[in-house]
Structure formats: C-alpha cells, structure tokens
Simulated scan of single mutants.
Amino acid sequence: MRTWLIKLRKEKRYTQQEVASKVHIDRAYYAQIENGTRNPSIFVAKQIADFFHIHPSVFFTEHISDPFQTALLHSPIVLAHCGRDLRYTWVFNAPPPHSEEVLLGKRDDELDVNEGTLELMKMKQDVIHNGKPRRKQIRFPLHEEFVTYDIYAQPIYDPPGTIIGAATCSTRLS
C-alpha cells in the first residue's frame, strides 16, 4: 500500500478520479497504483509525480539496489530533494521522529518552526537562487537537547539546465 500517495492525494483534496483524469489514466489503474497491487510505468510515474510535484523515483524506492540501501539505512545520513517551493519531493532515511511519508510534499516550516529549520530553508533557498552548492552545520532542537547536522546542498537541474530544486545530504554529528 502506498499510504504516502493516498495521504498526499487527500491533503490536496483530490479524488482518485480527479487524479486519474489529470494524468490521463484509468481510475481503476490509479487505484491499483495507490494500493500497491500495480507499479506504474516510468511514464505514468512521471505524470503522477509531476501532478503532485514530487520526484518519480518515490514509486520505485523499494527497488533501490541493496548495497545502497544497506549502506545508508539506519545511518546518520539523510538524503533529500526539494522543489523550488522547498517542498520535499524525495527523501531517503528520514530523521526521527519523521518518516519519508510525512515529509513528502511538505516544507520544513510545516513540520516544525525553529532556528534550525528556518536556517535550513534559507540555505536551500540560497542554493536554488544562486545556483551554487553550500555546506553548513545547523543545530536543531530535539526534545530537551540539540542535534547538529553537517548539511551539503546543491542545485538540481532539469534537462534544459534550469534549476528545479535542491538536493541535500545531511549527516548527524551529535
């Protein structure tokens, strides 16, 4: 079951029929994609992803190569993409207490507002605006303490060379 897709659709207040119509597929096929009984083709995954402003690879995350997943799963490293609007379009190894499902389609300030999240958003916005990578250590409050991440961000380009977002690699230091 792709609960993240169902949640994203419901948050945007769309029915399955509305999404299917917008991406030019049959509603029954879309329902099978949502409930996980069918995988979309790459073309259909891209259409749905474009509609929801997410990265199409989220449909195939469970098929990521074992060495990649084994090396990073449960590590202190979080990988993510966001669009120009700073909404997460792809996340791997989300930091607790969040999950990939919770982060998709959200901005950091919709999850929590603190100095760390605001600084992270400013960093990503600078990367998107200036087109230059940045690296910075940012502290985030977590319960009664602070957690520091070393964050590297770089722009993401579409095939014609237009900046469409930012990719980040965050490593927990403490």
Score class of each variant (00 low, 15 high):
residue 46 K to N: 15
residue 55 H to W: 04
residue 62 E to P: 09
residue 15 T to L: 01
residue 64 I to A: 13
residue 47 Q to H: 11
residue 75 S to V: 00
residue 25 I to H: 04
residue 46 K to H: 14
residue 23 V to E: 05
residue 74 H to S: 04
residue 25 I to T: 05
residue 24 H to S: 15
residue 13 R to D: 15
residue 27 R to E: 15
residue 68 F to C: 01
residue 64 I to R: 04
residue 41 S to N: 06
residue 75 S to W: 00
residue 42 I to H: 12
residue 62 E to K: 09
residue 68 F to L: 05
residue 58 V to R: 05
residue 37 T to A: 12
residue 30 Y to V: 00
residue 17 Q to E: 14
residue 35 N to A: 01
residue 51 F to D: 06
residue 43 F to V: 12
residue 37 T to K: 11
residue 61 T to Q: 13
residue 61 T to N: 06
residue 51 F to R: 04
residue 57 S to N: 07
residue 75 S to I: 01
residue 35 N to T: 03
residue 38 R to E: 11
residue 60 F to P: 08
residue 45 A to C: 09
residue 28 A to C: 00
residue 30 Y to W: 04
residue 73 L to Q: 07
residue 23 V to A: 01
residue 77 I to L: 08
residue 54 I to A: 06
residue 29 Y to W: 08
residue 51 F to V: 00
residue 66 D to N: 15
residue 26 D to Q: 04
residue 20 A to E: 06
residue 33 I to E: 04
residue 39 N to V: 02
residue 61 T to L: 10
residue 25 I to P: 10
residue 44 V to W: 05
residue 69 Q to W: 09
residue 38 R to S: 14
residue 70 T to L: 10
residue 58 V to W: 02
residue 39 N to Q: 11
residue 45 A to I: 00
residue 70 T to W: 03
residue 78 V to A: 11
residue 33 I to K: 01
residue 68 F to H: 03
residue 76 P to G: 15
residue 25 I to D: 05
residue 40 P to I: 02
residue 75 S to F: 00
